[in-house]
Simulated scan of single mutants.
Amino acid sequence: MPSSRSSAPARRPAAAAMGPATALATALLTALVLALTLPDAARAQVPPMRPAAIKAAHSGPGPVSLTAARFSDKELTDGFMWTVFGLEYRTWSWKPYQVKKYEGPVLFRLTNLARRDRTRDVRRFINGLTKEVRGLNARLARDTESANFHLFIVDRAQYVETVRREVYRDSSARAPGRCLVRVEAERKGITRSTAVIVADEGDHLFRRCLVEETLQGLGPMNDDDRLVHSVFNDSSDHDTFTVFDRLIMNMLYDPRIKPGMTAAMVKPLLPQVIRDARRVVR
């Protein structure tokens, strides 16, 4: 995935000095950091993001309810900047500090190589994207030639060979990560994405890889450990299309955000873009 992933956990205060809501959130976040480990890359130590949802009053057992309204404009602005600008693997770099997105329809081709056929789950996720993300036109391709997003479902034993053949087109290439996506883009937008999803290492990893690699193949190609409510964070345990990520994707596919834009060009537009994204995501 041409995105530069970086990780360096920030220190947090001891639970004993916190209120019950903060202590619960800290314990949960600590567990999530240990749950899933994908590729590492260097990042400077930075303070963790502090979502408004964590600040909500919560006592006793049970999940904290998350809605779009619980994230501040600053949190969404930071999330957009941290995911859209940057690349997880810089060796695949294509203008990492410019916006990358599809300008036309995203046409998926699915190839199942795994012993267990999970294409039904993948189709369901793809079919829901257009409903979840305003401005995104995503659907299954009618034929191989018209497809511009190729998604391979494999068993772990097939992973390296598939990455080399379908992603790198190099029989000696290294295949990083537990799943990945590569994006090919020009100034006018993304022209092709290729993802490889592992299907035989449990439902959680399959769902996590499906959501993260598909979304990253649509444009936000960087990961950041500060994004505690996002799949764009290799230390999080999310395996669904979270509210936070739906907001980020709706911001990216707002028609005012164009391929090739820099952070300086995008930032003045974000207050209105965020307001409109909140109307779509509840």
Rank of each mutant, 00 (worst) to 15 (best):
R50F: 11
V84N: 03
A56N: 11
K101C: 01
S72P: 10
D225F: 11
S65T: 13
R118D: 09
V280E: 13
T26A: 14
A42H: 09
D121K: 03
R192S: 08
D234P: 07
Q45N: 12
M251A: 01
L136V: 04
P61E: 08
L140P: 03
D155A: 02
R118P: 07
R156M: 15
S146H: 15
D40C: 12
I153N: 11
A69V: 12
G260Q: 09
D117H: 04
M49A: 09
C209Y: 05
T91S: 14
S171M: 14
L107M: 12
F85V: 00
V160K: 13
P2Y: 07
T37C: 13
A23C: 06
D143V: 08
M265R: 06
D203M: 01
V183T: 07
G86A: 06
A16G: 13
L136H: 00
L76P: 03
A10F: 00
R116I: 10
R142T: 03
L247T: 02
V99D: 03
W92K: 12
N222L: 06
R164D: 02
M81S: 13
A52N: 02
L87N: 13
I257R: 05
F108R: 09
K258N: 02
S65H: 13
M221I: 13
L218E: 11
T214I: 11
F244A: 01
L110G: 01
V231K: 06
D224I: 07
P48I: 01
S146Y: 09
M49Q: 04
F125N: 04
F125E: 00
V211P: 06
A44G: 14
P47C: 00
A175V: 03
V231N: 07
V198Q: 03
H58M: 06
S4D: 11
F206I: 04
K101A: 10
S3M: 11
I248H: 08
L32V: 08
D78N: 13
P9F: 00
F85C: 01
A52V: 07
K188Y: 14
A17M: 13
M265A: 10
C209M: 02
A17T: 15
F80L: 05
H229M: 14
V211C: 02
L28T: 03
S230A: 05
S93A: 07
G135D: 06
A199G: 10
W92Y: 15
R12F: 14
